[in-house]
Simulated assay, not measured.
Amino acid sequence: IHILSRVHERCLSTSLPAAQSFRKWYQQLWTTERTNLPPYDHFTQVGDPVLRGHAADVPTDYVKSKEVSEIVEQMVKVLRKYNCVGIAAPQIGISLRIIAMEFKQSIQKELPEATYKARRMTELPLTVFINPQLSVTNYTKHKHPEGCMSVRGYSAEVERYEAVKLSGLNQEGLPTELELSGWNARIAQHEMDHLDGKLYIDHMDTSTFICTCWETVNTKSGRVEIPFYK
């Protein structure tokens, strides 16, 4: 067995133990001797245990706390830094049930018009849900290519429901609901999976799994790097 196949254990858990107070747990993230601490400025990658755990609910009393606000702020920063459309707290190393989504109109200019229409893509302003719940409102399924910044450099076709409804709390701690369809419904389902320790590779059509830069690998005789930073 190659040494790299060993399980790498964290010296500090980023999951919230039930018996531990939220504030004490959060403060421990900053008092460890680790050199790089969550919430990260990058996306965690498949293999990191935080991506396979069931994220904890944010305690109601802390939804509007400074700690949670800092986590959300960092999530949005990373989301926009990498020009993505969705992010979940485990992707920056924090095992809490928080997601953020944003589909900018400018993305339309980056895609062929036929692709934009076929995938039913529409603008979605920045939306944050704390302790979200998802219900399916249209059980019709569509299969489209899907990628993930936590499985960097790969994609595959995944079936997702046509329409869903998200309910939960906003950053002010107020109950909120949002109905989504098309590509935005796909984003919501993808991010909700992260909160339950699932990745798109668990649902994908394995025959469609590809390295997104395979052509460049051939053209440049393998001299290609997949960046995990920006």
Score class of each variant (00 low, 15 high):
residue 95 S to K: 03
residue 43 F to L: 05
residue 73 E to A: 13
residue 185 A to G: 09
residue 229 Y to I: 09
residue 179 E to F: 09
residue 14 T to G: 02
residue 113 E to A: 11
residue 54 H to F: 05
residue 126 L to E: 10
residue 165 K to Y: 05
residue 72 V to G: 03
residue 164 V to M: 07
residue 149 M to H: 05
residue 208 T to H: 13
residue 11 C to L: 09
residue 26 Y to A: 08
residue 76 V to S: 06
residue 163 A to D: 13
residue 72 V to K: 12
residue 184 N to L: 06
residue 13 S to W: 01
residue 195 L to Y: 04
residue 174 L to I: 09
residue 69 S to T: 15
residue 116 Y to E: 04
residue 157 E to Y: 04
residue 188 A to P: 04
residue 193 D to A: 08
residue 76 V to E: 14
residue 7 V to Y: 10
residue 171 Q to G: 07
residue 42 H to R: 14
residue 208 T to R: 10
residue 42 H to W: 10
residue 164 V to W: 03
residue 85 V to K: 00
residue 82 Y to P: 01
residue 190 H to R: 06
residue 7 V to Q: 13
residue 83 N to A: 12
residue 2 H to K: 15
residue 50 V to E: 00
residue 45 Q to K: 03
residue 4 L to F: 11
residue 201 I to F: 09
residue 16 L to Y: 04
residue 51 L to I: 07
residue 36 N to I: 13
residue 185 A to Y: 06
residue 11 C to H: 13
residue 193 D to K: 05
residue 84 C to D: 05
residue 89 A to E: 03
residue 57 D to S: 04
residue 19 A to F: 10
residue 207 S to L: 06
residue 87 I to S: 01
residue 36 N to P: 00
residue 211 C to Y: 08
residue 84 C to V: 03
residue 63 V to D: 08
residue 187 I to G: 01
residue 47 G to T: 11
residue 228 F to S: 05
residue 229 Y to C: 03
residue 50 V to D: 02
residue 87 I to R: 00
residue 73 E to G: 15
residue 20 Q to D: 14
residue 213 C to L: 15
residue 15 S to H: 12
residue 45 Q to A: 08
residue 186 R to V: 04
residue 156 A to P: 12
residue 73 E to K: 13
residue 11 C to M: 14
residue 16 L to N: 02
residue 20 Q to F: 13
residue 199 L to D: 05
residue 172 E to K: 14
residue 13 S to I: 04
residue 7 V to G: 02
residue 61 D to R: 14
residue 153 G to R: 04
residue 207 S to W: 05
residue 195 L to D: 00
residue 20 Q to N: 08
residue 74 Q to N: 11
residue 142 H to V: 12
residue 194 H to Q: 12
residue 170 N to A: 08
residue 40 Y to W: 15
residue 74 Q to L: 07
residue 114 A to Q: 05
residue 186 R to P: 00
residue 28 Q to C: 11
residue 179 E to L: 09
residue 213 C to D: 12
residue 70 E to V: 04
residue 189 Q to S: 04
residue 79 L to N: 01
residue 128 V to N: 10
residue 48 D to T: 02
residue 118 A to V: 03
residue 106 S to A: 15
residue 11 C to D: 08
residue 99 I to D: 01
residue 124 L to Y: 12
residue 22 F to N: 02
residue 68 V to R: 09
residue 114 A to M: 03
residue 14 T to A: 04
residue 48 D to H: 13
residue 173 G to L: 06
residue 34 R to P: 00
residue 51 L to E: 03
residue 69 S to W: 08
residue 108 Q to I: 04
residue 89 A to W: 01
residue 151 V to M: 07
residue 132 P to I: 14
residue 20 Q to E: 15
residue 194 H to P: 02
residue 19 A to V: 10
residue 215 E to C: 07
residue 40 Y to T: 00
residue 140 T to M: 13
residue 57 D to H: 14
residue 58 V to R: 01
residue 81 K to I: 08
residue 161 Y to R: 05
residue 156 A to K: 01
residue 192 M to L: 15
residue 99 I to R: 02
